[in-house]
Design a protein around this nucleic acid. Structure first.
Lengths: 189, 189
DNA sequence: GTGGTAGCCTAGGGCCTCTAGCTTTCAGGG
DNA sequence: CCCTGAAAGCTAGAGGCCCTAGGCTACCAC
């Protein structure tokens, strides 16, 4: 009975990789066990259940994306920061569709609080320092930016833009230009 | 052997209702059969398989939402149209989370073409008639609007805005103001 | 009445989740 | 060098979901 050397961490990483390959919905405990050459039941000493596994993948993805965002923001301000951060977001979604999908599951407040989710809001807020916005406009703008990034990434990944000839790269670039203009012309209360 | 009177249409409608109640991911052929007081296998003469069922729910939701959008747009133009359409979109997502989730699955090109998906783009484009935009800016703006509506609706539904005190209603209203400003100041090429 | 068809059924196989309880490996202390 | 306890795996098995194959039955049209 040779040990496969399974740990919770390796398991979650494998699950994330599998998600990127076959889709988050198709990640199963059984498939994962097969990948490690081990029986399904053996994995339950590392994870509580399938839901737990999914949540861990979500937390991993949130942390990875937060790191990328932080790198993108480093040393940039204003539109530069906006573009760099937005690209980090979209690129991650394109490179890691499974991980990105995992991020969308509804985390319990406790898990969400312990995750990197907060860093995402902070960073989006940091971008706005390059623009002249005070509360509550800032919060509204954060929500708009986050919505737009997320919406664009998911719609593009789901092929929602395929039916129009216009290439998504140019559209994305223009969308960022537009958001920059928007933040500069934010309607005052 | 009393007949339960199952038809594909009633099945799809029941699936959609169930999705709104327990979440789209938890809609199962078995649960649906139980609801009709019928065995699982009996449903397979009405639907091809579980995936087929999901697609039909998606198509139903797309059509319903398109109808609401059309009603909202009737007799309105400019910002009025923008706000009415956006609200129709968001309200539908709030009232019918399961149906809304169904709309996000990746439809095959054939099914997508036969669905009301095209009407959605058309309507979004119609809103832009109130603003002065020509191609390719129009397509880019359509994508931005759609992304933002969709992103806001999904993030709000997933509770992504819960951690900030600011109420989502006001944020939404201001977001629409901002989008109106944006369309009026769209960066020219 | 009598067909035909549509609606339901039983039987059964395959995959996935998860629990319970047992065996083996391995590291560290006596 | 042996012993032992924890960690890593295993088998068995129950339950749920998906789906196919093939048979029965209610109902409508003629």
């Amino acid at each position: 009975m040779a040990r496969a050397g399974v740990t919770a961490e390796r398991l979650v990483r494998a699950a994330a990789d599998l998600a990127d390959e076959v889709g988050f919905d198709n990640v199963t405990v059984s498939a994962l066990a097969r990948g490690f050459g081990v029986k399904d039941a053996s994995l339950y000493s590392h994870i509580r259940n399938a839901q737990d596994l999914r949540e861990r993948v979500a937390v991993l993805a949130l942390a990875e994306l937060a790191d990328r965002g932080a790198t993108a923001l480093a040393g940039r301000a204003g539109k530069d920061a906006l573009v760099a951060f937005a690209n980090a977001y979209r690129d991650y979604a394109k490179e890691h569709p499974g991980r990105y999908a995992a991020m969308q599951i509804d985390l319990t407040p406790e898990i969400a609080a312990a995750s990197a989710a907060g860093r995402h809001s902070e960073m989006t807020r940091a971008i706005l320092r390059g623009y002249d916005l005070s509360e509550p406009d800032q919060t509204d703008a954060v929500r708009l930016l986050h919505s737009t990034f997320h919406g664009y990434a998911t719609l593009e990944a789901a092929g929602g833009f395929r039916h129009t000839p216009r290439d998504t790269e140019s559209s994305w670039s223009r969308t960022l230009d537009a958001l920059d203009v928007l933040l500069n012309h934010w309607p005052r209360t």
